[in-house]
Write a protein that binds this DNA or RNA. Structure first.
Length: 590
DNA sequence: CTAGGGTTAG
């Protein structure tokens, strides 16, 4: 009995020693030595020691998953911890794969052990990385089958999986079923809404979270701030920044980056820069979001200067950084710089994506090199998407371009989006500038015949922390009567200022018979009218729109800024317009 | 041994 106690004590000591060694193990070489020593001792069969070795090889950044797989296959009866460790190890690999699922299937086939909450959480995480909805659904069933559905870890993992698969209704259903929502479940749901662009829902849920008395942290705030960026909700974004400071929430890399992006996308590029300059450490995303921000504001020199500062600070740029750099060059016609950055990018081993080709086509077109842009597109190793063809066609407007370019691009575009009205509108306008009237009417005929759908224009404006959305000819707003009256007043005052509606821009959105009302009910006009009603003179009117502004709205907004003496900032789908006293910051080029 | 976050052309 004394002997048995002694030996069990010895084993305990050895196990503790091994655990301590592995905890400080720096690399696989050392781990193999420790493993070899384990095999010499009577504890070689100790699952404890083996599982420590397994955990290191599977989970440590300096581990070796192949070693873990081999070791695992030699364990006669792996316990649940071993299975879980291998599953998690495989789901942490740089390239997500279905391996965690197949290991799980193997475990189920073995009949034992039964999965626990750890198993499901790891598997669900693996599925969310793959956006594997169907597998996730099966795991959801297993959660019930094995009685694990009440675990907050499983619930959050399910919630997260559904948002990653962009299945918001399922995510919300899981969220609604959670009786005790914690910081993680609130953050996951808010983040899910924000990622798919349901910004109002994200902001609403954030309010409910506070009402429920759950204190947000830097992770929650990063999602909420990014929702503000997408919504163009500057006032709320500013308020949240103050909230962050007041609550002492840590401004880590992610939250700072979200703030930079929010300020940039909400028109406050100087505030964005302030946040950026205040960061003690900056990674690729932080640099990129600042560079992209400067680019969309047309601060091209600053953007390029920042890029070289980024290179000096040895942070590696990625494809997003180059989207910023190349689009900055495109915005101010820096053709040779653009070409240089393009080859820098290739030199760094960054494969150009569709966005980069898009920037180059835009760059060449704006500089008047439409033919060269066309050969560039023809040489693309990936199949150009409709944005590429649209960019090319937009470039054809400004120069005398050969029919070949126009016809090829037109054909491709209509082939790709035969039901997209935007395409017919673009082509119809282009043919009009080229005085090819038969083709203009051909486009309109085709559009009617096919019943092409127009993406409805949608503008929003933020008043007292709430984002109000308006679509073209919208009559669903509760205060629509007042808005209509305000619109009539605007139209009258604008007309008296000498404006004549530019009917050709009606083509941008609608079919002919709707011309008259259409112009006055473009969504940005509703939003501007509502802001004029709800805010007073020094307050700046800020509108965010999902499409480009049309020529007529651009003219009218300039006049409104003068006759109502209000500064108006419109965030287009791609850039900012700042209207002050009858002129726009884009100098009428957009 | 578990969960939630930031940047992307026109």
């Amino acid at each position: 009995m004394g002997m048995a106690a002694a030996s069990s004590m010895t084993i305990q000591l050895l196990e503790d020693a091994i655990a301590a060694l592995i905890q400080r193990c720096p690399d696989m070489r050392t781990l193999r030595q420790i493993h070899a020593h384990c095999l010499k001792f009577p504890i070689s069969s100790s699952l404890f020691a083996i599982s420590k070795v397994l955990a290191f090889s599977a989970l440590s950044p300096s581990g070796d998953i192949a070693y873990a797989r081999r070791l695992f296959s030699q364990i006669p009866n792996p316990n649940l911890f071993c299975w879980n460790t291998l599953i998690r190890g495989c789901s942490l690999l740089p390239h997500p794969s279905a391996e965690p699922i197949s290991i799980y299937k193997q475990m189920l086939r073995a009949g034992t052990p039964r999965p626990n909450t750890f198993t499901l959480a790891f598997l669900l995480k693996a599925c969310s990385l793959l956006s594997a909805f169907l597998e996730g659904l099966q795991l959801h069933c297993h959660a019930f089958k094995y009685g694990l559905h009440a675990s907050p870890f499983v619930q959050t993992a399910l919630l997260n999986l559904y948002t990653k698969c962009e299945n918001i209704p399922s995510a919300r259903a899981v969220f609604d079923e959670i009786p005790q929502r914690n910081l993680f479940s609130w953050s996951a749901m808010i983040g899910g809404y924000a990622r798919v662009g349901l910004v109002n829902q994200a902001l609403q849920l954030f309010r409910e979270m506070q009402e429920a008395g759950v204190v947000p942290d830097e992770v929650t705030m990063a999602s909420v701030i990014s929702a503000c960026a997408k919504a163009g909700a500057l006032d709320l974004g500013r308020w949240l920044h103050v909230f962050i400071d007041r609550k002492g929430i840590v401004l880590d890399l992610e939250l700072s980056t979200a703030l930079i992006d929010m300020y940039a996308k909400c028109g406050e590029i100087h505030k964005a820069r302030e946040v950026f300059d205040g960061m003690p450490v900056r990674d690729t995303m932080a640099w990129s979001s600042m560079i992209v921000g400067l680019a969309i504001h047309g601060h091209v020199r600053d953007a390029l200067q920042l890029f070289s500062a980024m290179m000096d600070s040895k942070v590696a740029p990625n494809h997003v950084t180059f989207v910023g750099v190349l689009s900055a060059c495109a915005h101010s016609g820096l053709v040779s710089d653009g070409r240089r950055y393009w080859s820098t990018m290739r030199h760094m081993g960054i494969e150009p994506l569709m966005e980069h080709y898009g920037c180059m086509v835009d760059l060449l077109c704006r500089a008047g090199h439409v033919e060269e842009a066309f050969s560039f597109v023809k040489d693309m190793p990936i199949v150009p998407n409709s944005v590429i063809w649209r960019t090319l066609l937009a470039g054809c407007k400004n120069t005398r371009t050969s029919d070949e370019v126009v016809e090829t691009a037109a054909e491709k575009l209509l082939e790709m989006g035969p039901l997209n009205a935007e395409n017919y509108v673009l082509l119809s306008n282009l043919y009009a500038t080229r005085c090819e009237w038969d083709k203009v009417s051909q486009m309109r005929r085709k559009m009617k015949e096919l019943g092409a759908k127009v993406v409805p224009g949608c503008s929003s404006t933020e008043i007292d922390g709430f984002v109000h959305e308006f679509t073209v000819a919208d009559d669903t707003h509760p205060e629509i009567q007042m808005i209509r009256e305000a619109l009539r007043d605007i139209t009258e005052r604008v007309r008296r200022a000498g404006h004549e509606p530019s009917t050709s821009s009606v083509l941008h959105d609608v079919v002919e018979e709707e011309k008259e009302s259409a112009l006055c009910e473009h969504s940005e006009r509703l939003a501007i009218a509502y802001s004029l009603l709800k805010t007073k003179s020094p307050a700046v009117i800020k509108v965010v729109k999902n499409l480009r502004v049309c020529l007529d709205c651009h003219e009218v907004t300039k006049i409104i800024s003068k006759v109502y003496d209000r500064e108006i900032i419109v965030r287009d789908r791609v850039r900012f317009h700042r209207f002050v006293n009858g002129t726009c910051s884009c100098n009428d080029f957009w």
